[in-house]
Design a protein around this nucleic acid. Structure first.
Lengths: 202, 202
DNA sequence: GAATTCAGTATACGACTGTATATCAAATCC
DNA sequence: GGATTTGATATACAGTCGTATACTGAATTC
């Protein structure tokens, strides 16, 4: 019945290995996409053999699903901005600029999904997860008419900025002054998430 | 010196084959991305052997570069909206909604690039082309302070909408009423491309 | 009409992919 | 302490990839 005896119990070692594979896979998928990342490379970076992926995650597809689920559990855009702030639009703008700042490997679920867009399997998995994020966004931050469409457009903006800044590294966006970007993004976001702002356009 | 003798001259046949490969590749890259599309499949769809790609384009990389260059020569978002219209923002919104309407395989260079984001080669090629589109956008449609950043954000919005509507097919965007989307997008675009609209936000 | 050019094919090579099978060895259990 | 579980490895398989080499046959040239 005792579950530990040696300094590193077998179960603990298994958990550590599983976590190492997950972390390695997250990085690999973010950098090379679903098709571009190989199981041998992922396993090697985790210090094990490729077959351990099969053991712990069933298949590459299963591994990817778990990675994406993991990275989207706490949508980065919603967690960074403080939802309680009065100037919600600016909070979102600051959060978006912050998480897309260069220098760190972008491990966000959105970007991992985008880099994997070549794979049909990966796209299907990403589709489900993003639909969940959309639901959360729509109910958490947006009221008024066409809330669903506006939440989706907000996510589209977030996705586009992430992609241009971190993936394609379009220079004026990647190297822009953060403050300038926040100032430019705030009214854009406001016209999407603030009820009434977009109603009188005709 | 005579250059034609048979009904289908050799040179004409070569041009036709080259064009067929290019069209087939464009479709394949748009559907499966750079890594996902195989030369054998591309060639077969063009009615020739895989080796013809090497003959006409040097390599898969060369083929992809030519496809992307071809699709971005006339940026779809700039060509659809009438740049002379007084309500430029609405024109852009209508153009964006129109080109991202479902039912047709999205052959736009942006989407081809996004689907190929897993490949480093493809990303590098796409980066150059998008930088050119950015230049064209900034000079053609945007004036005022931070024109370059605003043009980039505009492209980010376009990219995000394309991705969400056509690639991930996020339901509320993919199935939204076109008129509703145009109404929602118009003020968003306006706050990016109309000088002065985004200046007084602090 | 013979010689030559060249569009297009056939085949093969080496590398890499995801994963199934068989095996080893250390931690756990009784 | 012997039996058993199980984390991990080694090897192999069938497939696909991009592309290099050798070749065929029809259009072109002289």
């Amino acid at each position: 019945m005792k579950s530990e005896s040696s300094p590193t119990s077998r179960a603990a070692k298994a958990d550590a290995t599983r976590a190492a594979i997950l972390a390695s896979a997250r990085k690999a998928f973010a950098e090379h996409g679903y098709d571009g990342a190989g199981l041998r490379g992922i396993a090697e970076a985790a210090g094990v053999t490729a077959m351990m992926v099969g053991r712990y995650f069933g298949s590459k597809e299963g591994l990817f699903g778990e990675v994406v689920t993991d990275t989207m559990r706490d949508p980065i855009i919603l967690s960074q901005g403080n939802l309680d702030r009065a100037d919600l639009s600016r909070a979102f703008a600051e959060g978006l600029v912050k998480v897309t700042t260069q220098g760190q490997t972008p491990l966000d679920g959105f970007l991992i999904s985008f880099r994997s867009a070549g794979s049909e399997t990966a796209t299907r998995i990403a589709r489900e997860r993003i639909a969940q994020v959309h639901q959360a966004t729509a109910t958490a931050a947006i009221a008024g008419d066409h809330a669903s469409e506006r939440a989706a457009l907000f996510l589209a903006l977030v996705a586009g900025v992430q992609m241009m800044r971190q993936m394609l590294e379009l220079e004026p966006l990647a190297k822009a002054e953060p403050g300038v970007l926040v100032d430019l993004l705030t009214p854009v976001i406001a016209s999407l998430i603030e009820p009434g702002a977009a109603d009188r356009t005709q």
